[in-house]
């Protein structure tokens, strides 16, 4: 293994909000990073000893937990789902804000009494969080794992409730669903591998500090 510092960034929605912070912290990826046609997965940066990898948001947590990447950006929805003991989340970046919520069809929500539930079936990308959340209420949650388009599940009879990320609520509304309970407020965190923080403390606390300053500067400008 070489001594390069690897930063894992999530593909998609959060990346657009994260890149200004990454750049403000002084890390500029090579040109191919912004080229949608590029097939590269690993990118060099203006720092010869730092590389960036771009993976699915759930995989950011896994790469960093196993020490394959040292730093990363991941939402606390992902951190809650995996509950990896090797992950530290020292900085809330305040980006990608949304909620992890329970939703159900609007007409069901009108008559439903959650106190009477002993078992629910839920379609979700977050089976662990969902099971824990309902277990704390004494309800057994049977989770159907889906990777997307959760909103379709109730209308097609797969289940009556879903647990998913909600930002504006317009997707839910368009599918006749109503947000009934918020499990957690979600923002993206700077995450760091525990062993890397212990064995390269100066370097990693330095980068955490630079991200902290980048975030504070962005807040001040907003």
């Amino acid at each position: 293994m070489d001594d390069k510092l690897v930063i894992a960034l999530p593909k998609g929605r959060i990346l657009d909000e994260a890149m200004p912070l990454v750049r403000a912290a002084g890390i500029e990826p090579e040109a191919a990073f912004d080229d949608p046609k590029s097939r590269l997965l690993r990118f060099a940066t203006n720092h010869p000893h730092i590389d960036i990898i771009r993976v699915r948001s759930f995989d950011v947590a896994t790469f960093v937990a196993f020490g394959a990447a040292h730093l990363g950006i991941a939402g606390n929805d992902v951190l809650m789902e995996f509950d990896y003991p090797e992950l530290y989340a020292p900085l809330d970046l305040g980006i990608g804000a949304c909620r992890l919520s329970v939703a159900e069809p609007a007409d069901l929500a009108a008559t439903d009494d959650p106190r009477r539930w002993s078992h629910v079936r839920i379609a979700t990308k977050y089976p662990e969080v969902t099971r824990r959340f309902f277990a704390e209420r004494g309800v057994q949650a049977e989770c159907v794992k889906l990777n997307g388009a959760m909103e379709l599940a109730p209308s097609l009879g797969l289940c009556s409730r879903i647990v998913d990320l909600v930002s504006t609520g317009s997707t839910l509304k368009a599918n006749g669903l109503k947000e009934v309970e918020v499990i957690a407020d979600v923002t993206s965190r700077l995450i760091v591998n525990r062993a890397a923080l212990k064995t390269r403390p100066g370097e990693l606390t330095g980068w955490i500090e630079r991200f902290r300053i980048a975030r504070e500067t962005a807040d001040a400008a907003a």
Partner: peptide
Amino acid sequence: LDHKDAAA
């Protein structure tokens, strides 16, 4: 504290 989650 365990996850060094400053926000939490």
